[in-house]
Write a protein that binds this DNA or RNA. Structure first.
Length: 439
RNA sequence: GCGGCUGUAGCUCAGGGGUAGAGCACUCGGUUGUGAUCCGAGUUGUCGCGGGUUCAAACCCCGUCAGCCGCCCCA
């Protein structure tokens, strides 16, 4: 690298994606649309630092979470300050810390959204990165958070997906109290392993689950079958309620979860048919969830979740001596976006420039008029790119074509002649006045 | 972090121990003010990177990096 005559051939860094301009343009549009939906519901934005103290990140006892730590290259032996910092792995934990820290200055229920990158040191794969954008929306309240939010937040999430031009999305809902209460009633001891196994139902099938429950979670064949029976319950409405009841297991936590989930489903009935599905096998996501949980999927694909979230009753309680229950979801923007690039979803309307108009430079002598024309159009709100040299028109048009700029503007070739504008899609060209022309 | 598969021109890929190919793309031209079609001409690679074996390596071996798949974990 120090050798001037040698080039250092750039190569991708595993798990760190970057897009071409045409894709980045769409990504930014998406962020705007999602932001707009969030604000429509009155949520405000905050941005927190990329780093948090490791004590904050690890407060919920999540062992390592593949957290990246931050150190100086030339850190002194006794300089352990930076070593205590780590890049955040999600936006919910920083949000909880923020809420606790600024407790006295915030209005509750505190509703906020954050669109930032997160980092996880996992093995990259399709749709899975080490650095990725999340669009996170949460609400936290003091002491108690009304259950209505458990319906509002998923509704907002769904609206955000709907604002994007993407294939149909399905929200899968459950409540952690159901599975935990049920397994407790069955006398299951290693609930973590059992729920982890049940969560894989979609992936490994009923046989795989039974095998995992008996071999790894240590359940008897009978208990394993009963556990599976619950996890297999799915419904598009409140039908799950009676199905669970008919299994004949009595447990207070279970009942609480059932009532909550029923309430949530009822309060989401305004969503389009097929938008939500109760799926009692889902449990995953981070450990801090305590009630409602949900995952978003692209329908008819086998891609992983493109968003998820849930209710957490005592996350912020790790940072302040108060009870601050919250609920929130996160849209996995980078994952969703990269999957759609992969399937060629953006092929059509791609532009490689935000410009609406390419301003032709017919002749060096016309540069003044050309510039003036461009500025007139810009003042009227159009995005105008100037062609940089008085090259052959063939070249200038080919440039517009390559960047998919929809209009090409021809200033007068000679004084007194009219302006002309060409629609590159139709090929139609006509006279135009920069002061009045409309797309 | 563990295991597996893959890596040849900008893209999709063929080749397979003796000094690198196709299609598409790209560049230029087909005269005077016009792209996407057509015609003509042309350019393109340290065969991911580093090392080893060999008279000779893109091809064999080792390592490494990257992508993908599975696990783990999760957006």
């Amino acid at each position: 690298m120090g050798d001037k005559n040698r080039i250092y051939k750039p190569k991708p860094i595993s798990g760190y994606a970057e897009w071409l301009p045409e894709h980045r343009m769409v990504e930014m549009e998406w962020m705007d649309k999602i932001r707009n939906v969030f604000e429509t519901y009155g949520f405000c934005n905050i941005e927190t630092p990329s780093v948090e103290e490791l004590d904050v990140l690890l407060a919920k006892g999540e062992t390592d979470k593949e957290i990246y730590t931050l150190t100086r290259l030339q850190a002194d032996e006794d300089d352990d300050k930076d070593a205590r910092l780590g890049l955040h792995f999600d936006l919910t934990v920083p949000f909880a810390r923020y809420t606790a820290q600024h407790f006295n200055d915030l209005v509750f229920p505190f509703k906020r959204y954050q669109i930032q990158r997160s980092w996880r040191g996992e093995r990259p794969q399709k749709g899975r990165y080490r650095e990725f954008y999340q669009c996170d929306i949460d609400v936290i309240n003091i002491d108690a958070l009304p259950l209505h939010f458990d319906a509002e937040i998923p509704a907002i999430m769904y609206a955000a997906y709907q604002a994007l031009d993407i294939p149909p999305v399905e929200l899968r809902l459950s409540n952690r109290k159901i599975l935990i209460g049920y397994l407790t009633a069955l006398g299951v001891e290693d609930i973590t392993t059992a729920t982890r196994t049940l969560d894989k139902l979609d992936k490994i099938g009923a046989d795989g689950v039974i095998k995992g429950l008996t071999e790894e979670a240590g359940l008897s064949e009978d208990i394993a079958q009963k556990s599976l029976a619950l996890a297999e319950i799915k419904s598009e409405d409140t039908g799950f309620y009676d199905q669970v009841k008919s299994l004949g297991i009595q447990n207070d936590l279970l009942d609480e979860g059932l009532d909550e989930l029923k309430f949530v489903v009822e309060n989401l009935s305004h969503l389009p048919k097929g938008a939500i599905k109760v799926d009692l096998s889902i449990v995953r996501g981070f450990d801090y969830y305590t009630g409602t949980i949900l995952e978003a999927y692209l329908k008819d694909t086998d891609y992983g979740a493109i968003g998820s979230g849930g209710r957490y009753d005592d996350l912020a309680g790790s940072y302040i001596n108060k009870k601050l229950p919250g609920i929130g979801v996160s849209i996995g923007l980078t994952r969703l976006f990269s999957l759609l690039i992969e399937i060629g979803h953006f092929k059509e309307a791609e532009r490689k420039s935000p410009a609406d108009i390419l301003m032709v430079l017919p002749d060096e002598a016309q540069r003044g008029v050309t510039l003036e024309t461009a500025n007139t159009l810009r003042a009227r709100g159009y995005k105008v790119e100037m062609y940089h040299a008085a090259s052959k028109l063939k070249k200038q048009l080919a440039y517009a074509e390559k960047k998919a700029i929809p209009f090409v503007w021809f200033p007068p070739f000679k004084d007194g002649k009219p302006h002309e504008v060409k629609d590159m899609n139709s090929g139609e060209q006509k006279n135009a006045d920069p002061a009045t022309w409309e797309i």
